[in-house]
Amino acid sequence: AITFRFEGQEKAKKFYEKLMRQNLEATIHIHGDEVHVTVH
């Protein structure tokens, strides 16, 4: 698994949606202002 870190939720959401379109499995974790997107 690879984890990407984002400042702010907007960028993270766009990235997450892009992964979903590519049929990749990903989970999102929100830590205050920092958002972690883990790709499995």
Rank of each mutant, 00 (worst) to 15 (best):
A1E: 10
A1N: 11
A1L: 12
A1M: 12
I2F: 11
I2T: 06
I2W: 12
T3W: 08
T3F: 06
T3R: 07
F4Q: 02
F4L: 05
F4P: 00
F4E: 01
F4T: 02
F4Y: 14
R5Y: 12
F6N: 01
F6K: 01
F6L: 02
E7H: 13
G8R: 08
G8I: 11
G8S: 15
G8V: 11
G8H: 13
Q9E: 14
Q9R: 09
Q9K: 10
Q9P: 13
Q9T: 11
E10L: 08
E10V: 07
E10I: 07
K11N: 10
K11E: 15
K11Y: 09
K11Q: 15
K11L: 13
K11R: 10
K11F: 09
K11P: 12
K11H: 10
A12W: 05
A12Q: 01
A12C: 06
A12L: 03
A12V: 02
K13M: 15
K13P: 00
K13Y: 14
K13L: 15
K13G: 05
K14F: 09
K14Q: 12
K14S: 09
K14A: 13
F15L: 03
F15S: 00
F15C: 06
Y16G: 01
Y16N: 00
Y16K: 03
Y16P: 00
Y16A: 05
Y16S: 02
Y16I: 10
E17K: 09
E17L: 12
E17M: 13
E17H: 08
K18E: 12
K18Q: 11
K18N: 09
K18L: 14
K18H: 12
L19D: 00
L19P: 00
L19T: 02
L19A: 04
L19E: 01
M20F: 04
M20L: 14
M20I: 13
R21A: 13
R21P: 01
R21S: 11
Q22K: 10
Q22V: 06
Q22C: 13
N23H: 10
N23P: 03
N23K: 10
N23S: 07
L24S: 03
L24V: 13
L24P: 04
L24H: 05
E25W: 15
E25K: 15
A26Y: 11
A26G: 03
A26Q: 02
A26F: 14
A26V: 14
T27S: 10
T27M: 05
T27D: 07
I28A: 02
I28D: 00
I28G: 01
I28L: 10
I28V: 06
H29Q: 10
H29T: 14
H29V: 12
H29L: 09
H29I: 12
I30N: 05
I30V: 10
H31P: 00
H31F: 13
H31Y: 13
G32K: 06
G32P: 04
G32I: 05
D33T: 12
D33A: 10
E34L: 09
E34N: 05
E34P: 01
E34H: 12
V35K: 00
V35Q: 01
V35E: 01
H36T: 12
H36Y: 15
H36E: 05
H36W: 15
H36N: 04
V37P: 00
V37A: 00
V37Q: 00
T38D: 03
T38M: 10
T38H: 13
V39A: 04
V39T: 04
V39D: 01
